[in-house]
């Protein structure tokens, strides 16, 4: 079977710096992959490479057998940047409709098929309840689900979610994760989910991709999130401590790399 995503010896240079060196990963269709690593490790860069927005200096990336390139309709993408439309009353539904087939020429007019597509994405992302309210008055969690609906347009087979949990409170983090897990179950979409903290995603991930020091490790949670594997990536001594089902990643010299409560 063709892998959903195949990354072979991928290397990325930005501004004269090696961001990623020889990253390898093969992801099967329908997998939920959590992508972790410190700030600036290259999580978003890897996402941009998969989208064909950042060039590789070495190696290859292919999506369902097709080399990475711009405007790949198999990919749904939720960017990290947050949209703000303060001072406008544009509704959540209008925001999703504006994205539907937004790469076409002409007037932003939605025919029946597109309107149905917008409704499907809105339902799948769980936005129905507040679809007609102005986007500007929605909470952070609600806005993120509008972003999820935008990413789900066009029935993508690979969903790239870049830091969707950032600046959400724990309850809204859980709501969003549950929604994504449900989408995975009902649509069999392959999901790549970047996050800062491993803990909120513990119950839903199939495997983990950890990026640090320009390298990446992929595998099950127990293979990758270990003192040994992470020390190897960070090239310094790292301790992984498990307390009551939570995982803490700590540098040996002190300083918590990742810690969060997980209810």
């Amino acid at each position: 079977m063709t892998p959903a995503l195949s990354i072979v010896d991928a290397g990325v240079r930005l501004g004269g710096l090696d961001i990623l060196r020889a990253v390898n990963a093969e992801i099967a269709p329908g997998e939920f992959i959590g992508i972790f690593g410190p700030n600036g490790a290259g999580k978003s860069t890897l996402i941009r490479c998969i989208l064909g927005l950042a060039p590789l200096v070495s190696g290859t990336i292919s999506i369902f057998g097709v080399p990475a390139g711009r405007a790949n309709r198999m990919i749904g993408y939720m960017p990290q940047s947050r949209v703000s439309l303060e001072g406008t009353a544009l509704s959540a539904r209008s925001m999703v409709a504006a994205v539907a087939a937004g790469d076409r020429w002409g007037l932003p007019w939605s025919g029946r098929a597109l309107r149905a597509e917008v409704e499907r994405a809105i339902e799948l992302a769980g936005v129905e309840e507040y679809a007609d309210r102005p986007f500007a008055v929605l909470s952070g969690g609600e806005r993120q689900r509008v972003g999820l609906a935008q990413a789900l347009l066009g029935t993508p087979q690979l969903l790239l979610l870049d830091e969707p949990l950032a600046s959400l409170d724990p309850r809204n983090q859980m709501l969003l994760i549950e929604r994504v897990a449900e989408i995975k179950k009902t649509t069999r979409t392959t999901i790549l989910f970047t996050a800062h903290d491993v803990n909120p995603l513990l119950g839903v991930m199939d495997r983990v991709l950890y990026i640090a020091g320009g390298e990446a490790a992929i595998g099950s949670l127990d293979e990758v999130i270990t003192s040994e594997a992470l020390s190897h990536l960070y090239k310094t001594e790292i301790r992984v401590i498990r307390v009551e089902g939570n995982i803490f990643i700590i540098a040996a010299e002190g300083g918590v790399i990742e810690a969060a409560r997980h209810d």
């Binding site: 927005l53 405007a71 960017p79 940047s81 439309l85 504006a98 994205v99």
Partner: peptide, 10 residues
């Protein structure tokens, strides 16, 4: 409305 997504869509 979504510049990053638009860029990814070509």
């Amino acid at each position: 409305i979504q510049p990053d997504l638009a860029e990814a869509r070509g």
